[in-house]
């Protein structure tokens, strides 16, 4: 193996890591907020809100993220005059914001299902007991529902984080040069696909390893009893 080339590739590809991480973590943070909102809408007594959330989840989970990215970036780009009038063109003008929007909406759809699962796992007895103590509304959510739901949802959410880090590779199709985009450029310049794959793959595995460890640590902190049961990874 040509170690000089591997070294050079590594130096070039590592330049894409900040963008990869930035996109992954901003979309996960924003997506989580939206996911909680969607999960609450699904449980709302006002059914139209639930239908709206269900429809959102259906569309974004039922179609490939890549199509969503193209639709938002190239598709909406066609409507520049209208978006200009609404004063939001500055947002859609930037490939970064378009990518962030697509990633956020996509992870929110998957996240909503995870959060909903977490909320449903809260035993009715716990809520009844809290009510008997006079807790209600926000206090009930903050002190009883949220902690239990979080404990349940965290492992699945850890998976979602890894999937999002992988998903950021798709933004290279709309000119954003993150790790995979740089790898593609390097391959088309040098035609050395194996070495480049090797280096880029190693970078992603290292990121995933670090993230997995962090999540395990978090699990251990908030739910030492649950963290013991090593759940197999879920797929969606």
């Amino acid at each position: 193996m040509d170690f000089t080339f591997l070294g050079e590739s590594f130096l070039r590809l590592i330049g894409g890591v900040p963008l990869t991480l930035q996109l992954a973590f901003s979309s996960i943070a924003l997506g989580l907020c939206l996911a909680i909102l969607l999960a609450l809408m699904m449980q709302s007594w006002f059914r139209p809100l639930g239908w709206l959330a269900d429809g959102f989840v259906f569309v974004f989970r039922g179609t490939p993220l890549l199509v969503q990215i193209f639709l938002i970036y190239y598709g909406l780009g066609q409507f520049r005059p209208a978006l200009d009038e609404m004063g939001i063109w500055w947002f859609f003008r930037s490939p970064y914001y378009c990518a962030l929007l697509a990633l956020t909406l996509n992870t929110a759809a998957y996240g909503a299902e995870i959060v909903r699962g977490g909320l449903q796992s809260v035993p009715a007895g716990q809520i009844e007991a809290a009510r008997a103590f006079g807790m209600s509304g926000l206090t009930l959510y903050r002190r009883i529902v949220a902690p239990i739901a979080l404990r349940q949802a965290l492992p699945a959410y850890g998976n979602e984080v890894i999937l999002m880090i992988k998903a950021t590779s798709l933004v290279s199709t709309i000119t954003l040069m993150e790790v995979t985009g740089l790898a593609h450029k390097l391959i088309s310049e040098t035609f050395r696909s194996f070495e480049v794959f090797f280096v880029a793959g190693a970078i992603y595995l290292a990121i995933n390893f670090a993230v997995t460890r962090l999540i395990e640590l978090a699990e251990h902190r908030i739910a030492p009893d649950l963290a013991q049961a090593n759940r197999p990874a879920e797929v969606h």
Partner: peptide, 18 residues
């Protein structure tokens, strides 16, 4: 400098003012 896969794509982005 932004790189595109095809010229058709940068044409679309030029029209859109990106």
């Amino acid at each position: 400098i932004r790189e595109y896969k095809t010229t058709e794509q940068h044409d679309l982005d030029l029209a859109a003012g990106r």
